[in-house]
Computed example of a mutant assay.
Amino acid sequence: MMNRTIVLETERLELARWNEGDRALAFALWGDHEVAKWISGKGFLSEDEVEARLTQQIQRQKEAGVQYWPLFEKESEVFVGCCGLRPYSTEEDIYELEFHLTRDHWGKGYAQEAARAVIGYAFDKMNVKALFAGHHPDNEVSRHILIKLGFEYTGDERYEPTGKMHPSYVLRK
Rank of each mutant, 00 (worst) to 15 (best):
V7I: 05
P167Y: 01
D156R: 08
G109Y: 01
G43K: 01
L146Y: 06
G109F: 10
G109N: 03
E160P: 09
L8V: 02
E63F: 14
Y95L: 14
P70L: 03
A133P: 03
I119D: 05
Y153H: 08
Q67N: 06
G155E: 02
F72W: 06
R17D: 11
N127D: 00
W38I: 07
E63M: 15
I147S: 09
Q56L: 11
L13F: 01
L171R: 00
L45Q: 00
Y153Q: 03
G84V: 04
P87N: 11
R103I: 15
Q67M: 13
A52G: 06
F72C: 01
W38L: 00
H136M: 03
R158Y: 12
H105K: 08
R53S: 10
P161Q: 03
L149W: 04
C83T: 01
S46R: 02
G31S: 07
S46Q: 00
E9D: 10
E157C: 11
A117Q: 04
R86L: 13
L101M: 02
P70S: 01
V66W: 14
I94S: 02
A26L: 09
C82E: 12
A28T: 11
A122H: 08
Q59R: 09
A52T: 09
M2F: 15
F151L: 15
K164T: 07
E11K: 11
E11Q: 13
H135T: 12
Y169M: 03
F151S: 14
G81K: 03
E77W: 12
L15F: 10
A122V: 03
K164D: 10
Y159D: 10
T154Q: 15
P137C: 02
E91V: 13
A28K: 14
M1R: 13
K37V: 14
E14C: 12
M165V: 07
Y169R: 02
W18Q: 10
H136K: 06
R116T: 07
G84S: 01
W69Y: 08
G120Q: 11
T90M: 09
D104P: 13
L45R: 00
M1L: 13
H144S: 10
R172G: 07
A114S: 10
S40A: 01
M126Q: 05
E20P: 07
L171V: 03
G21C: 08
E63H: 15
Y169A: 03
Y153G: 08
W38S: 03
R103L: 05
A24S: 06
Q112C: 07
Q57V: 06
Y88F: 12
S40E: 00
L25E: 02
E9T: 08
V141D: 04
L101H: 06
H100Y: 07
I6G: 02
D48Y: 07
V50C: 02
A26C: 14
A115Q: 14
A115T: 07
V50R: 01
E9R: 10
A64L: 08
L25W: 10
Y153N: 01
E49S: 02
A36K: 03
T154E: 15
F27C: 00
L97S: 00
